[in-house]
Design a protein around this nucleic acid. Sequence first.
RNA 1: GGUCCCGUGGUGCAGUUUGGAGUGCACGCUGGCCUGUCAAGCCAGAGGUCGCGGGUUCAAAUCCCGUCGGGACCGCCA
Length: 589
Amino acid sequence: MPGVTVNLAARTAHRSDFCGELQANDEGREVVLCGWVNARREHSQHLAFVDLRDHTGVVQCVVDNAHDLRNEYVLRVTGVVTKRTVDTVNPNLGTGEIEIKECEVEVLSTAEPLPFQMDGRTDVDENLRLRHRYLDLRSERMQRNLRLRSRVNSAIRGAMEAQGFVEIETPFLIASTPEGARDFVVPSRHSPGQFYALPQSPQLFKQLCMVGGVDRYYQIARCLRDEDLRADRQFEFTQLDAEASFVSQDDVLAFVTEAVAAATEAVTGERPGEIPRMTWHDAMERYGSDKPDIRFGMELVELTEVFAGTGFNAFKAPAVKGLRVPGGAGKTRKQLDELTDKAKQWGAKGLVWMKVQDGGALNSPVAKFLSEQEQTGIAKVLDAEPGDLLLLVADERAKARHVLGLLRLELGRPPVNEGGFSFLWVVDFPLFEALDEHGSPIPAHHPFTMPHEDDMALLDTADPTDLLQVRSQAYDLTLNGWELGSGSVRIHRPDIQSRMFALLGIGEDEARRKFGFLLDAFTYGAPPHAGFAFGIDRLATLLAGEENIREVIAFPKTQTGADPLTGAPTEIDPAHLDELGLRLLPEKQ
RNA sequence: GGUCCCGUGGUGCAGUUUGGAGUGCACGCUGGCCUGUCAAGCCAGAGGUCGCGGGUUCAAAUCCCGUCGGGACCGCCA
């Protein structure tokens, strides 16, 4: 029969087509559809409409009588695709030009009324959604997000394979290493009293793959970290993990850029432009963050020089930095007090605010302590306009940057799904983030990170505070102010690695105990290598225009680490504990 | 470890500031009517441990203390 199409992708033993794909050119076909009752409109005992829904959309079925049908019943409907009359076309429905007539309806499954409505019109309490996640997954939003994430995964795999990367699975039950985040541990039945750790990342295994001549490794890897949960953090998360041999930092950035560009294109249809780079130092000074949200301005401004000779005690500090809030002078005293409270909670000693008045004078509780020169200096350096609010923090440099960076986000950050996708590479991270109580440096990334070649000489310096100036070949990728991931060029030479352990105050015995297998591996011909990992949950969240990572995870945990659906975590049988050689301590009072 | 917000029929809210009868709105649910709706409409009805415990008061959804659950953030996340 001419014009008849057969939907091979949809056809199964139970159905011939998907609900949402039927169009006017299917007119005349007899189809068999399966799905859920999305809505029913009963006009009489002789006319009723049933909207049948599957993951592709909704189609209207015309039936004699819908009295025994209820929302969310699972039906199989056999009928004929029919063009609607002009006055009954529904332009708001993808299949609105047609409807299914002469319907024979078979109830495959009945359904109780749902514990919540999933029509997308109201925000349902998230705990309720999670308790009935199998219902929540039916919603358009979750269907969209899960399928989006699937496309992201697929695009990333395609990009990595095309660049010659080999997918290798690494173990889940591994040895615990003391560095980094808190491990999830698994007791060993064979060796009571001993434990495996679940991987925080496949870091060491991918480096072993390089020694093993793999050349280019990747994995869409599940990672587990027992740290407190946030809107962008779950215990369990998924990373694109990658490592390559005989490469530079630029090579790695190019590989990863290709993967995120492919993922972005798979969702938006457009490849992002070239990803800009910023040094860690610039990011910290200009945005007060190592993951700057560059979708908006409001950069931090250096004011230390302006107050070099100040008589105002609060500004006699190692650093004074400021932030201009355009049009912010309308804030009330109460709002400013709340901002000050937040700044203090974030660690600042205080927050100085100034309202720029018509004519340029500064209205501020501290104005009387500042010289005229200082007041004009502030206005000039901050480029202040009447109606602006100026915020100043004087403190240790790191503290001032941090607090102002948080204030900048608080006051200027657009909603996460506005302003497109601003990827940014942050490069030249410091090798060490601080000195511990013994004066030993604390690694900013991990102890296998290669120092910046230009800074090698500084490693031999006598003054440990100079070590904090040493840059590393470590880099982060950020998107709209979220850290997507990080990577580094690794140390592959045992002599440099030994020097690094010595600097970190890790003795030879300790190094052997913790990383002996890696150090051994490196004595047998380790290629220079570098790698990266970025969070796929986070990338998918932002690409989906969501604000919370849980919206792109099928079965996420709550902020306290519980799963309202399964009840995890749960107690286990005492006999099970016994077998593992474990005994519980009494509960702490 | 800390700061803040939320908890009211099945769902989403209002009511809490200033204590006075479980008062209101929308959706859903049950029954009825209705032959072109599409978030159908109309009529009727059912449905409540105001998260839980204690306190103040003649009287508590409302004020106080504690606790549980959820959320946002700081710390934490090499």
